[in-house]
Design a protein around this nucleic acid. Sequence first.
DNA 1: GGTAGCACCAAAAGC
DNA 2: TGGTGCTACC
Length: 717
Amino acid sequence: MAVATPESYLADLNEAQREAVLATEGPLLVVAGAGSGKTRVLTYRVAHLIRACGVKPNEILAITFTNKAAGEMRERLERMLGQTARAIWILTFHAACGRMLRREAERLGYRSTFTIYDDQDQVRLVKACLEELGKDPKRFSPRGIHAQISRAKNELVSPKEYAARVASFWDQTVAETYELYQRRLHASNAVDFDDMLMLTVQVFERFPEALERWRKAFRYVLVDEYQDTNHAQYRLLQLLGGEHGNVCAVGDQDQSIYSFRSADIRNILEFEKDFPGTQVVTLEQNYRSTNTILRAANSLIEQNTERKPKRLFSELGEGDPVRVIEVEDEHAEARFVAAEIASFIGGGFSASEIAVLYRMNAQSRVLEDVLVRQDVPYQVIGGPRFYERAEIRDATAYLSVLVNPQDATSLLRIANRPRRGIGDTSLQRLVTHAENSGRTLFQAMADPEAAGVTAASCRAIRSFHATMESLMALSHDLHVDELLELVLEKSGTLDALEAERTIEARGRIENLQELVGVAREYRQQAEEQSLAGFLQDISLVSDQDTIRDERGLVTLMTLHNAKGLEFRAVFMIGMEEGIFPHSRSIEEQGVEEERRLCYVGMTRAMERLTMTHTLARSLFGRREYNLASRFLDELPGEVERDRLRPASWSGYGSPVSAAVEPRPGVALSTGDSVRHGSLGEGVVTGIEPGGVVTIRFAADGTERRLMVEYAPLEKVE
DNA sequence: GGTAGCACCAAAAGC
DNA sequence: TGGTGCTACC
């Protein structure tokens, strides 16, 4: 591919976009409406800085919210700039802070090999702290306390400051727990996600020479999804970019949907005040949706007060009307959506161009039942994540201990996994003894007798300690993947799983093999290889990163997950008061954010948008009768409103015909093991003419007839 | 030290 | 309704 020249890429942009690319000096706020080509603006701006302004690639820091977004941006820039693009820091806030913090950790008394604790580790540690403080876990749920600590960190409130402004008894407990939690993290040479931001801010505030270095390093800073930044992230931006002022924030206040995880919409609303001399560019031309869809979305979002005026338009014509459909209950809703999907597919849409969006994950179940029965191929985004699976967490905990033996949380996790006769009692004794003798837990394991552990346990602990020491000795000379394989073998993990001889254990082994594959990939592509680096990489991977447009699959997901994506046809289900807006948001006066979420959903649709609401719905075992969502009332009069009566749904429910894109043929015979996209593992018990197979599923023992060509099946060897 | 059964709870989820 | 975390038992 030819190297991009300014003439060629500037011609690709509309006037506002070009303005945003060319305004390279000083603070710039790009208010980028949904589908207005903001990724293009960001990448072209970076390319322009390098190609036309003589900026070196390593002088640019481009921050995104997800690894996926960072990856996409890097890919695009590599296409435009070739190898040059590799030197640009295109990272998430956390990844960027992680890199800086590894170089500055010593200033705060951490070692550069620090471990990153994920949510599970964090809650575990909070729980341990609560127990140590003798707090009643019924009154103080570890989750709740942790959420409060996390919020404090995101607002850069230290344990000391928190303690100083305690306002209730509960708060008092949070303050005490926060203080102990932070001490324990530090003693374990570990940081949590929030620390990555907060500690980086601390380094910058307390060590001006460090700040100066990083400030000089990054002469140009760009931040995507600015509406979702929290206070700590805002402060980082101010520290890094406030002086030279070359800060470019891209975002859309109408798509701010993450206040529940500390995002502060104030950041974008007051950017101009925070960064004096800001130039504002608003991108209002939308390249995604029909004007009919945009009019509906505009009409909805105009009900919000916390916003600056902005009105999207497009040149993609009027298109089909937006539809609002009332149905009897959630089953009728699912049948209606399934039938509509079938008819869209029959009309030439590919399944992967269709999405069903809902407010809560629990809403997918009924829909899945109907889709399975009608052989509509689909994928659900969300649910258990690869890196959160127990076996994966165990394996990474082993690696954490090898790189950072101070890491007590990981050590406690793996001490008896697989079972090797080191029970809770023994571990508790070791923890106490370590504390009293001023040693780390790992050091205490070298001499378990001293902790007063029973003879049998002592033997087990000694042997475990010796295994870990020998692995540690090897860890410097081996590649990450080799070390991981050795860990799985020497720890007895593989043997234990193989001995189980169950399908589940088999799956776990496969997952572990996949992790080895990830490590092998890391070896091949990471520039600076280290075990700590590998662990950081995988602890920062998310669900979002794995969303792909799977060929031939309809996508089911929550509205939150849909952000940043687009589909030719979108269904939004459960448009009812109490569901959406969610009842909690109504109580907590968060309806404006719910409305923004609705806006995000609507603006995912390119051509067809259908919203449904039910008269009655069973939720958590109770039957509820909800009014239609207020959001539906806020749509313009031109939307098509229909009521589906019982008599008319009988027609809905006939299986999707051959219009579904056939998947590559899967040859099956009786007795084969198969895996279904949603139903899990099973065995083929019968084959019928016409490509119909009967499968008995292991999970619930039921038998189902499926069309081989269309069902999301794969053969398991 | 491991597991079965029961009580409890319930929004969204990036790094 | 269904998943999860803790207590009571083997």
